[in-house]
Amino acid sequence: MKKILLLLVFGVFLLSSGMLLADNEGMEEEYDEDIYGPEEPIVWVKPVESVVFEHKVHTMGAELDCESCHDDLFAMEAGAAEENEDFTMATLYEGGYCGACHDGSSAFASNTRCTTCHIGVRGHMRLIGGDGDEGDKH
């Protein structure tokens, strides 16, 4: 039980590392999905496992409105971006998708701080409550 709790706490910490402009006061406010978008983090597994995006960090935290990204950069429809062939780091570096802001001036550049968004298989497992793969167990 303790271990699960610990895992959860780690998971939360991990996600919070992605909150570039998150301020703690804002966090205490009620989260309204109509204003801020879905509360559940989005996890992309294509083209590589696994990248996390949180509306919360960007809307409530960084005070961006929906129009900042929708529908120009991302379609509203869940999982749509993942299906696009150009949903790659190369596109991001050219200002597509996340790269529109994550360019080093508005927000940290897409080619830095990889693990902020790339939570990997381990992070993903933790997020969905599976066991992380432990190196010393078989």
Partner: peptide, 19 residues
């Protein structure tokens, strides 16, 4: 081969992950 995960404090309660 496998991948392990390190955590490093960035101060102010924030952390970064290193695989």
């Amino acid at each position: 081969t496998t991948i392990l995960e390190k955590r490093r404090s960035l101060g102010g309660g924030k952390h970064e992950t290193i695989f």
